[in-house]
Amino acid sequence: MSTKQASPLTGVLILAGFVVLGMVVFFGVRARLQSGTASAEHGPSWMEHPLEPRMKKTAPPPPRTVSTPRPGAKVRTLQEFYSRRAYAGAPPIIPHAVENDGLISDGCLNCHQEGGYVPEYNAYTPITPHPEMGNCRQCHVLQVSAGLFVETEWTQPDLPPRGRQAIPGGPLEIPHSLQFRENCLACHAGPQAIIEIRSSHPERTNCLQCHVVGDNMQSFKSQIDPRVK
């Protein structure tokens, strides 16, 4: 039997297959994630720690910004996004001057918590996905010179793949870890979003209902759970 003559029953079967696959992927990944956390029953106290529930929150508030950028405003591109990071996942540098270098956070959140249009740059302020972390300068530094101390053989590693789906038409996989990046909308929705990775459906804020992390979470969990592998 050639594929052209596939009976309606085959189509239904394939469709059902997709559904089953989707469920297996979704619940399978969840199961592995949950089993990973069980390793904490031994020794380390991190499970008791009050930071944990906050780090694990799943439904961040959507940013209170208009969803369409004003005409002519500069849009953020992925190229610009990665140019500010040593590798995918590294904390971005601060690309603008900071008034008071003597503060752990010189009002950073005034702009970066909720975003908004900045006439000076004709652009929208990127929103931090982790506004609860107040010690901004712990990770984010200025760049006051362009040179190198010595040459380096370091090259920016491959960027995370985009557009990967488990099945055609299925939800896109999340190609990065969610650690401190749980507010998906910070980068994926609103006028400050990165143009290439803007969500087509920002009104549906329960992102993790359909999108799962592709790799990172599982491979590191297995490192600490003696029962996995």
Partner: peptide, 19 residues
């Protein structure tokens, strides 16, 4: 070695790290 992130399982840093 191409990337670093804080280990959420570390009771010291709980996923954090400095620059």
């Amino acid at each position: 070695a191409i990337a670093v992130k804080g280990d959420p399982a570390s009771s010291v840093s709980r996923g954090l790290g400095c620059v």
